[in-house]
Nucleic acid binder design. Structure first.
Lengths: 233, 233
DNA sequence: GAGTGGTCTAGACCACAAA
DNA sequence: TTGTGGTCTAGACCACTCC
């Protein structure tokens, strides 16, 4: 066990056999009890290794039948949704948040129904080295975060403040391309009708809505990256 | 144990205490041996529950110190990148692939350097109910997939064919918003200069490049969704 | 040094789906 | 019916790290 655990060894052995084509989609991998004999270990260790492969989507486990190499019909990747302040700082640029408006939310606000209760609406601009980087419109539920009524949104971006107030447990993201409306284009200092990446995020804490946010990025200044590595634990 | 395992119960109990604010970022959660006593179970069960919380990023485990509620500095979400054929079928629309060109790749092709060897280039259009849904430009490494030289790309989309040929083990995605070029807009039956979602994907098998693909979607016809649910096993 | 999490063992019983 | 994976137990030893 020189630095690598037995579980990791079992796992990477099977991964290699799948990657090399020795085991093809639909093939059955050895039964747990066979691997127990092959590696001379307990069933718990084998089971943990296969469970990790199943979580990674590489194999599919079926009771009474065995574990099989998955048919990769859909891909999944881990999408990192960074804190903008951190992201801009990591680019070596200076970050700045400009508040445009903070006021009680009304029924006409976008996704007011998601919050389903009293809320504040915050509008502002994220800037990198002084130039606009993203427009943000956000609703924060006052039931979930009462302190948001008098939040420090003049000085701090709602995202970084909010994350200190309350941890979220569920989120949904929606990513699309849109054309900037005239006022949005002006606020982002980009050509009217230019392509923008729109990221919407709905966040819950234990099932209760916390916040909704829509961020609009100039297409030429922002992109999202996602990685897939089944090796990663 | 009415449908829910003990491990899940321990896990959701701790999640709730974090979500409710009873346990705040930086707080120590009970030691494993304390939870063993509290739940009257074995340490393996407790450990598995906490391990799942750690993988979800909700807690951080430190030897000799204990397990602590994590400071949520970055968000991550699982992005599903679906097979287009399947996606369109699930929408209840009919799928169709139109080949535009298939020919040996040359050094001037985009991302030829990624393949780093002989390759074919395939251009085509994905259609839903007859109307253009996405433009695709793809390079396939002939070293990794020799059969691609005479692939059935007249009849089948390269993505669905390729996934049967070779399983990938690593992928990188890049998502951005771009304006459609005149010829792209025409091929997608959309206004010139309209906003498009551009998805690029680089794929490897055990470190060796397999394929590069660029897909261009009309902004009003496609969006990506990502979910984050620490509850999900 | 002491006590935590990390890993592993050698069993066990059960639910469930395939034969 | 049968045998698989799903879950759990009651231990054990180790590595690491904080005191």
């Amino acid at each position: 066990m020189n630095g690598v655990t037995l579980e990791q060894r079992i796992r990477s052995d099977i991964e290699r056999r799948i990657g090399s084509g020795e085991l093809r989609p639909g093939d059955r991998i050895p039964f747990e009890h066979e691997l127990v004999v092959a590696y001379g270990c307990s069933r718990a260790t084998v089971s943990k290794a296969i469970e990790a492969l199943a979580k990674a989507g590489l194999v599919e486990r079926r009771r009474r039948a065995g574990s099989f190499v998955a048919h990769p019909h859909h891909q999944s990747a881990v999408l990192a949704v960074p804190d903008l302040e951190r992201l801009i700082a990591e680019r070596g640029e200076s970050y700045c948040w400009t508040l445009v408006a903070a006021r009680p939310a009304t029924a006409t606000d976008p996704e007011f129904a998601h919050i389903n209760g009293p809320a504040v609406r915050i509008d502002g601009v994220h800037r990198a080295d002084g130039s606009p980087f993203a427009l943000e419109t956000r609703l924060i539920s006052l039931s979930a975060v009462p302190a948001a009524e008098a939040g420090p949104f003049e000085k701090r971006s709602p995202g970084s403040w909010l994350i200190e107030q309350i941890p979220w447990t569920e989120a949904r993201h929606d990513i699309r391309a849109v054309m900037a409306l005239p006022d949005e284009a002006q606020a982002l200092a980009m050509p009217k009708g230019g392509a923008c990446l729109e990221v919407q995020r709905w966040t819950w804490q234990s099932g209760a809505p916390v916040t909704y946010v829509r961020q609009l990025f100039p297409g030429d200044r922002y992109h999202l990256s996602a990685e897939f590595k089944p090796n990663a634990l």
